[in-house]
Amino acid sequence: MRKHIATYQIHDTFIITGRGIVFVGIILDGTIFLIGDFIEFEFNEQVLERKIKGIDNEMRVELGKPKVGVMIETKNENEIWDLRNWEPNKVIAKIFRLDE
C-alpha cells in the first residue's frame, strides 16, 4: 500500500559522477520525505517510479521555499544520461512511502 506524503516540483537535473542523477526542485506540499521513499514522475510520456537514495536540502531558496536535491536510483547508465538531458520544465512529482 502506498501513502502519498509530498508533492515535489522538478526544476532541473544534474549528475554526480560515480553516484547518479539528482533532481533539483521544491516541495510544494506535504511532509518531509526520507531516503527509501519513492518518487513518481512523468518522463517522455511515461510515468516512472524510482526509489530515493539521497536528499540534500541545503540548496538556495526560491519562491520562498528551499530548493531540495533528490538523488534517485536508476535502471542503468543510459537512463542517467536520458534524465540528465531532460528538461523537466517544473514537472510535478509525487513522493510516497510504502506502508509497512
Results as ranks from 00 to 15, higher is better:
Val61Ser: 06
Ile72Asp: 07
Val70Ile: 10
Glu45Cys: 08
Glu62Gly: 04
Glu58Val: 02
Lys67Asp: 01
His4Ser: 04
Glu58Ser: 14
Leu48Val: 05
Asp12Ala: 07
Val47Glu: 12
Ile95Ala: 03
Thr31Glu: 15
Leu98Val: 09
Arg97Asn: 02
Pro66Gly: 06
Val24Thr: 14
Glu79Val: 06
Gln9Tyr: 01
Leu63Ala: 10
Lys90Thr: 06
Lys51Pro: 08
Asn78Tyr: 08
Asp99Pro: 00
Ala6Gly: 04
Asn76Glu: 10
Glu87Lys: 13
Leu98Asn: 10
Val68Ser: 06
Val22Met: 04
Glu79Ser: 05
Gly20Leu: 11
Gly54Met: 11
Lys90Val: 02
Ile80Leu: 03
Lys53Asp: 03
Asn57Ile: 05
His4Gly: 00
Phe38Pro: 03
Ile92Asp: 00
Asp29Trp: 05
Ile55Tyr: 07
Glu73Tyr: 02
Ile92Gly: 00
Gln9Thr: 07
Ile15Ser: 00
Leu48Tyr: 07
Phe23Thr: 01
Phe96His: 11
Asp37Ile: 13
Lys51Arg: 15
Ile95Ser: 03
Leu34Ser: 15
Val22Phe: 02
Ile95Val: 10
Lys94Gly: 07
Asn85Lys: 14
Val61Met: 06
Glu73Gly: 02
Glu77Thr: 06
Asn57Asp: 14
Asn57Cys: 07
Ile16Tyr: 01
Asn78Glu: 13
Met1Glu: 14
Glu87Val: 06
Val68Ala: 08
Gly36Lys: 06
Gly25Phe: 04
Gly30Gln: 11
Ile92His: 00
Thr31Trp: 04
Lys53Trp: 03
Gly69Ala: 13
Ala93Gly: 14
